[in-house]
């Protein structure tokens, strides 16, 4: 049985809440809430970063794309968590673009429509994080899917399933890292769509079965999807990302 007790011994990373400075940046008003804590984190620790290749990430203008080998610092606080999601969404979107570019042998009309829907939907997720993070956004990542055989249905569907399941578990785990309820509510609007993707992809893999919410992913005893923390998720995503994602400042719990 799941342990659901309250655990007072696991405080979140606390960052003092500075006076809110009115920021008039149109639709990015919410940065008032998340920007303050993250900016503080960046300022405090920007000179303590490792001496690897140029550091990109929160606080730097990231109009340019990242480069292989760059260390991409996600940042701290809610900003870091949103950048974490942004990185995953970028990786997912690029994969889906490549699926549609190549179209595996025997892709049905229905399958094409599913992948097109997924691609189009993920565009809006990526765009959202880019817009909402503004100057705190990590750069456009360099993605490498050479390990996926895009002509092969199994290879594509397996990767698509892994991504959708991973994204679902990642959002489930990240919810508790967010400190702003608006951010949490918004992440909630995305995660259920990721779960829908997982369900539909799984049905393509094993039609007519229980696989859409299979016992391999949903714990049959509790009926719970996994929740994975960044430390578990990022190494999986990293295999497709040429930059080095640094989550060192993410809240731990």
């Amino acid at each position: 049985m799941e342990q659901l007790h309250k655990d007072p011994a696991s405080p979140k990373q606390r960052v003092s809440v500075l006076p809110v400075v009115p920021v008039n940046i149109g639709r990015r008003w919410f940065m008032r809430y998340v920007g303050v804590t993250a900016a503080g984190g960046v300022l405090l620790s920007s000179c303590a970063q490792e001496n690897l290749n140029p550091i990109t990430g929160p606080g730097e203008t990231s109009m340019r794309g990242g480069r292989a080998g760059d260390v991409v610092e996600l940042g701290s606080g809610d900003i870091g968590v949103l950048n974490y999601a942004y990185a995953l969404e970028q990786a997912e979107l690029r994969f889906l673009e490549l699926v549609l570019d190549t179209r595996y042998d025997g892709m049905s009309t229905k399958e094409f429509q599913v992948f097109k829907d997924l691609r189009d939907q993920e565009i809006t997720h990526v765009d959202f994080f880019e817009a909402v993070l503004g100057s705190f956004a990590i750069p456009k990542l360099t993605l490498d899917y050479s390990s996926v055989n895009f002509r092969n249905r199994d290879s594509v569907l397996t990767t698509a399933r892994n991504f959708a399941d991973l994204a679902t578990a990642a959002y489930n785990g990240a919810g508790q890292l967010l400190t702003d309820a608006n951010n949490l509510a918004t992440a909630g609007k995305i995660v259920s769509v990721e779960a829908r993707h997982a369900s539909v992809i799984r049905e393509l893999i094993a039609p007519g079965s229980t696989y859409f919410a299979g016992d391999d992913v949903v714990d049959p005893a509790t009926g719970l999807d996994p929740a994975k923390m960044p430390g578990e998720v990022l190494p999986v995503a990293q295999q497709f990302i040429k930059e080095i994602i640094s989550a060192s400042r993410l809240p731990m719990a």
């Binding site: 679902t168 959002y171 489930n172 919810g175 909630g188 995660v191 259920s192 769509v193 990721e194 779960a195 829908r196 993707h197 997982a198 369900s199 539909v200 049905e203 859409f212 919410a213 949903v218 009926g223 719970l224 999807d225 996994p226 929740a227």
Partner: peptide, 13 residues
């Protein structure tokens, strides 16, 4: 949240 995403899997199916 872990229940929420399972409901979404169900709904989609």
């Amino acid at each position: 949240l872990r229940i929420h995403s399972v409901e979404a899997r169900h709904a989609a199916r």
